[in-house]
């Protein structure tokens, strides 16, 4: 028996891992997974590394920028080259500072329009998989964040928090196929759910055939999902197609926000966090 176990230990451990992951999945799907002992540890371990990596990326991009600035001015003399590089670096610094300033001012202006308790956070990590659209924020429950908070930018809706540790939070983006935001057409008040899709980009689901929806219509949050405050811009209708059958029409959405471009976001809640069950 022992010899059999020893001979097949890899195979048996693999089967146990497959079954255990199915057990985790099943518990998570039914909402019975109350504690995740490894997740916060992993996020905590990776947080400083991710911040350092982002710093390195910034430095590399700066280096690349300098390299590009150097290219093509080989014929100029050394003094002028040095001066240009200095000025270029100075200009880059100022432009970056100005851009950051502008972004933060926009965030502050936008924050004053949101319900009280809005928190600003920076994006420190992206999704590790092609299949999911998510990112990691540098703030967590210690900063007042909790699961179910809406993530927005001055331009529009970004997503929602799906898990949170004391120092970081995971955001499920609006572009993920698992996400859903209750929206309405600003002009005709027609309602639906905006969700991501792997195929054609975000779509508006469950829009009835009889509803008046036209290309270019603005989509705003309805506030009925209890997550996003009412009236936030989600995007515009990019394409409407009515098939000859079915209850619903097919609506493609051009999102107001490109999540890949975001560096800072605001977190708001339609309601305060309830007591822990």
């Amino acid at each position: 028996m022992l010899a059999f176990l020893r001979r097949n230990q890899v195979l048996l451990t693999s089967f146990v891992c497959v079954l255990f992951s199915l057990y985790i999945l099943s518990a998570a799907a039914r909402g019975h997974l109350s504690r995740d002992p490894i997740g916060p540890l992993l996020l905590g371990l990776m947080r400083p590394l991710q911040i350092a990596a982002l710093g390195t990326i910034g430095k590399l991009l700066e280096l690349q920028g300098k390299y590009m600035a150097f290219k093509g001015i080989a014929s100029e003399n050394e003094r002028l080259k040095g001066r240009i590089v200095e000025l270029e670096a100075e200009r880059n610094r100022l432009l970056e500072a100005e851009a950051t300033n502008r972004r933060l001012r926009e965030l502050l202006d936008f924050r004053s329009q949101l319900p009280p308790g809005a928190v600003t956070a920076a994006v420190i990590g992206n999704s590790a998989s092609t299949w999911f659209r998510s990112f990691i924020l540098d703030k967590g429950s210690a900063d007042g964040l909790f699961k179910g908070m809406a993530v927005v930018s001055p331009v529009g809706v970004v997503g929602q928090i799906v898990s949170v540790t004391s120092r970081s939070a995971k955001v499920l983006l609006i572009t993920d196929p698992h996400s859903g935001v209750d929206v309405m057409v600003q002009r005709s008040r027609a309602r639906g759910i905006v969700s991501g899709s792997l195929d054609s980009g975000p779509i508006m689901k469950y829009a009835k055939r009889s509803e008046d929806i036209q290309e270019g219509d603005r989509l705003i949050t309805s506030g009925l999902d209890g997550i996003f405050p009412k009236g936030l811009l989600v995007g515009t209708v990019a394409k409407v197609r009515k098939k000859s059958f079915g209850l619903f029409q097919y609506v493609e959405v051009a999102l107001a926000v490109d999540p890949a471009q975001l560096e800072e976001v605001l977190l708001v809640s339609a309601e305060a966090p309830g007591p822990k069950k």
Binding site: I24, L25, S134
Partner: peptide
């Protein structure tokens, strides 16, 4: 599992796939 922690909305999806 770490991919699940960083990306997936539910735990276990990628742990299952990688196993």
């Amino acid at each position: 599992y770490s991919v699940d922690v960083f990306s997936s909305p539910v735990l276990g999806l990628n742990a299952f796939a990688m196993s």
